[in-house]
Simulated assay, not measured.
Amino acid sequence: MTDRLPKYDSPPVVETVLSVQFAPLQHYSSAHGGWFWKNYLDKEWATVQIAPRLDDQFERFGDEMIWGRGGGFRIVTQPEPERLQIIRADNERMIQIQDTRFIYNWKKEGVRSFV
């Protein structure tokens, strides 16, 4: 079979993100993200920073699409866990964790760093 995809010496993609969203983890805090960092990642993952949480995203179909357009607001009754960003020393990889998401980022070498 002939490979019909183009071949690039310098691909146009500079960042790739894989994100998984799930139901909120009960009693989650940034401490859990720190525990993951120290127990499952090696010393190459040297930088950690806190970032604002990302809002959950849902696909809407049919009549639901009408209500999903435009801006919106949320009423929060208690503090929500923030997003933990764990960055590898070479600034090419980042893992982001919050109570409803796990995100893995790859950034092309030589492109502006995550930090």
Rank of each mutant, 00 (worst) to 15 (best):
M1H: 06
T2R: 09
T2H: 12
D3V: 08
L5G: 04
P6W: 01
D9Y: 05
S10A: 13
P11K: 05
P11S: 06
P12E: 09
P12C: 07
V14C: 03
V14Q: 08
E15M: 15
E15I: 06
T16H: 06
S19Q: 15
S19D: 10
V20K: 00
Q21V: 03
F22L: 03
A23R: 14
P24C: 05
L25K: 12
L25V: 15
H27Y: 03
S29N: 09
S29I: 01
S30N: 11
S30Y: 02
A31Y: 13
A31H: 13
G34A: 15
G34D: 14
G34S: 15
G34V: 09
W37R: 08
W37A: 06
K38M: 10
K38Q: 11
N39E: 05
L41E: 04
D42H: 06
D42S: 05
K43N: 12
K43R: 13
W45L: 04
A46W: 04
V48L: 09
Q49A: 03
I50G: 00
I50P: 00
I50H: 01
P52S: 09
P52K: 09
P52C: 08
R53Q: 10
D55L: 14
D55I: 04
D55M: 13
Q57G: 07
Q57Y: 09
F58L: 00
F58I: 00
E59C: 05
G62S: 15
G62V: 14
G62N: 15
D63V: 11
D63G: 08
E64P: 00
E64G: 09
E64R: 07
M65Q: 10
M65S: 06
I66D: 12
I66L: 15
G68P: 03
R69W: 08
R69F: 14
G70Y: 05
G71W: 00
G72Q: 09
F73W: 11
R74M: 02
R74A: 07
R74G: 01
I75S: 08
V76I: 11
T77H: 07
Q78A: 15
Q78R: 13
P79N: 03
P79E: 02
P79Y: 00
E80G: 05
E80A: 10
P81I: 09
R83M: 14
R83Q: 10
R83F: 01
L84V: 15
L84F: 08
L84I: 14
Q85V: 06
Q85H: 06
I86Q: 01
I87V: 12
R88N: 12
A89I: 07
A89V: 14
D90E: 06
E92F: 00
E92H: 04
M94Q: 12
M94K: 05
Q96Y: 00
T100N: 14
R101E: 15
R101I: 07
F102L: 15
F102H: 02
I103R: 07
Y104L: 14
Y104K: 10
N105G: 02
K107Y: 02
E109K: 15
V111T: 09
R112W: 00
S113Y: 00
S113N: 11
F114E: 01
F114H: 01
V115S: 11
